[in-house]
Design a protein around this nucleic acid. Structure first.
Lengths: 338, 338
DNA sequence: GTGAAAGCGCTAACAA
DNA sequence: TTGTTAGCGCTTTCAC
């Protein structure tokens, strides 16, 4: 690669000091009252030499990189790419660049990622926490590093958090199925210590309890080592119950997609034979034979709030944000009245 | 945020020079034959002070950031997230961090993105070019900046390029439909100056020509300002032809998904009433009523080759890579024999 | 074995 | 109005 021109190169070409060049190229020529022809000469030299500022050097000096880190749980999740897109757009406003990384739900990778981002001096972090990452998060808090947690809440942690009303929405979803006269509503989720899934389960249970004690056999919490296979087995078991389940509430979009694929293979008709509801949205739903009823997270709103909160944190503003956002309910045709 | 400890802090705590600390913390204690107890003292101090290296400072000094930039056309494309995931994984091997950015198919945003990445001193770039970006790419070549183009080929540009055999695969796909006795094969694509789409069209045309002159009314190239609407209109027109089209070959996954959604709405049965083939894969296909026959790009291979090529370029190796990769053909049930 | 010191490219306080 | 200079945190050469 060709050597890049530096401020010094311009300075010596024009015969002035680097300081002057710095002023001009940073638009401080008014403030510093640099002479008009000087400004022009410097500008011309910069162009002639193909000058590109070195932000690394600037960052070292100013102790600001104007870069934020964004740690997602898995790039394959619709949530991840959706929020990423929204964050990228929102960053224009702050002139931030974002370095993104995926932990793959792996605490070790998660810790490594945080380390690298901090070493690269990002000004702040937006984080989707994973299981068993409390130590890392606590360390950030202790170092007063600016960051905000999204999507998942860590209990007992002092941090900015933005999430949705998991329990309330799950309760409402289940209530919707009950309203459509489904009475054997299965719940398929993951085994997880993460609070958002625990909350969704709570919402499901509290809704079901309004009509009687929940049947534990209708609740499937999968280890998620081999999702497709586990969902397949779970659904087969649910359908073999007597009385069988008459509907399924999927706690995530990934589970719903796996489930629908299996139902397709079984030739089971939705909603005629089985009601289906998914907590989260998936793009794959749109090609399913009937529109799937599901919740929708306000991804743009989450991103905006996250950036806004992060900005405050970076500016050293005191206080913690703690937002629980509403979701949209998209009524399809997958829970038709029985 | 708390002030971070620096090498100097450790040095003065232990009472040695920063050089020594640097040696130890970079694992050069053997090579520099640093005393054993000294090593321990320095290590302990680093832990005690919560030392984190400042990569910005190191980068300024070494002129290497160990960061690469990855510019995609749109994060919503399956290709983008798929390659991104593969690149991220592949980067472990090189200890690279990747800064990703999306141009949104917008040349202005594209140029801006390149500028920012270069200013941030990325060691190299992996780029999915967009329309009208030739000037920027040529500038990179002129500056001998290390980069590699993927997915799309820019004609007449001196650069490393990795893509798939668009023409050959499109020819083969069309041939597959012909082999299933489809004779009125429509082709839906985008209006674009990009060579990969031109090549797909060439492949389609050359296959069709083997059985006679192509009917231009069967070819729809959409402006892609409002995809769903344009696809809807195009399909309606194709079905209204006499004789109507008996199958559709979609040049991209996004078009295929739009198209299938409309076919769903029309109640048209695939493959009974219409054969469907998509050049690219979409996750949404898996929930469609019948498995869609489609091509699959070797995303992992593309990523590996891209990283490998970039590494060479960064190391200043001469020569240009120019790979045209094969694709996998996934036979579903959407082109059943008529 | 260890340390002094230069310097990466830039900004900003201070001088003139 | 323009220039000098210190120094951000680190690596690395050279000297002791």
């Amino acid at each position: 690669m060709k050597k890049k021109a530096s401020l010094k190169d311009i300075a010596s070409k024009v015969g002035v000091s680097t300081a002057l060049v710095s002023y001009v190229l940073n638009g401080q020529e008014q403030e510093k009252r640099v002479g008009g022809e000087m400004v022009k000469k410097i500008r011309d030299a910069a162009v002639a030499l193909h000058y590109t500022p070195n932000r690394i050097a600037r960052s070292l000096r100013t102790k600001k990189t104007n870069t934020i880190g964004f740690v997602v749980a898995d790039i394959d999740y619709r949530f991840s790419s959706g929020v990423m897109k929204a964050i990228e757009e929102g960053c224009l406003k702050y002139s931030w660049t974002v370095i993104y990384g995926s932990s793959g739900e792996n605490p070790k990778k998660f810790a490594e990622l945080l380390k690298v981002l901090v070493e690269r001096q990002v000004d702040g972090l937006i984080i989707v926490p994973v299981e068993h990452c409390n130590k890392q998060i606590e360390e950030l808090t202790k170092q007063r590093f600016p960051f905000v947690l999204i999507d998942r809440i860590l209990p007992g942690i002092d941090a900015n958090m933005i999430t949705v009303k998991n329990e309330q929405v799950a309760h409402m979803c289940t209530g919707h199925l009950l309203g459509k006269r489904f009475r054997r509503i299965a719940y398929i989720s993951y085994q997880s210590s993460l609070l958002n899934l625990a909350d969704r389960k709570k919402g499901y249970l509290s809704a079901v309890r309004e009509l009687g004690p929940p049947d534990p056999r209708l609740i499937k919490e999968l280890p998620n080592l081999n999702r497709d296979e586990e969902v397949k087995v779970a659904i087969d078991e649910l359908l073999a119950l007597s009385p069988a389940c008459d509907s399924i509430f999927f706690a995530t979009d990934t589970l719903a997609v796996s489930g629908l694929r299996h139902l397709n293979a079984l030739g089971i008709k939705v909603p005629e034979q089985l009601g289906i509801l998914s907590f989260d949205e998936s793009d794959a739903f749109e090609l399913y034979r009937c529109p799937i009823t599901h919740g929708r997270q306000p991804l743009d709103h989450i991103a905006r709030l996250a950036l806004d909160t992060l900005q405050r944190a970076i500016d050293g503003m005191p206080g913690r944000a703690n937002h629980m956002l509403d979701m949209t309910f998209i009524e399809g045709k997958s829970c038709r009245e029985k």
